[in-house]
Amino acid sequence: MKRIYPREEVCIGCRLCEVHCLVAHSKSKDIIKAYKRETPRAVPRIRLEARGPVSFALNCRHCEEPSCVQACLTGALKKDPDTGIVTVDTEKCVGCWTCVLFCQYGAITPDVERGKIAKCDFCMHLKEPACVANCPNEALLLVEETPEKPPKEPAHA
């Protein structure tokens, strides 16, 4: 399955991944409208962590044994057995935030305005996830991997 790996060696903390994630999950898909006109504003599903020179952006790991899916009280979170992608059915989600507590990556965001969670969906509507496509430094790497064969450390460091 696909995973997105942050490369903190080249991440400068510009937050463009957050911006483009937000736009990709907005109604209009337009950067100005998404920020200026849409209320409630869309919520980014990737989060930059920055501390001194260390920075990297993290989103859902689409875990092999996803705690969020297993903890979900309503059945709104599912792991697709074919693609491995963890998705949320926002019709079923009641915003109980149990998954927020159970995600050890902090990768699930309570979208308080909508009363639903927001999480990475791999931008299935796009050719490539928006965060990966718009990172100016290739600090987000899209990797195809199998559980048996973990990815090699990216050559570039």
Binding site: R3, Y5, P6, F56, C63, E65, Q104, Y105, P150
Partner: peptide
């Protein structure tokens, strides 16, 4: 390691 592990 944690980020790479993708939770096992």
């Amino acid at each position: 390691e944690k980020i790479k592990a993708g939770s096992r």
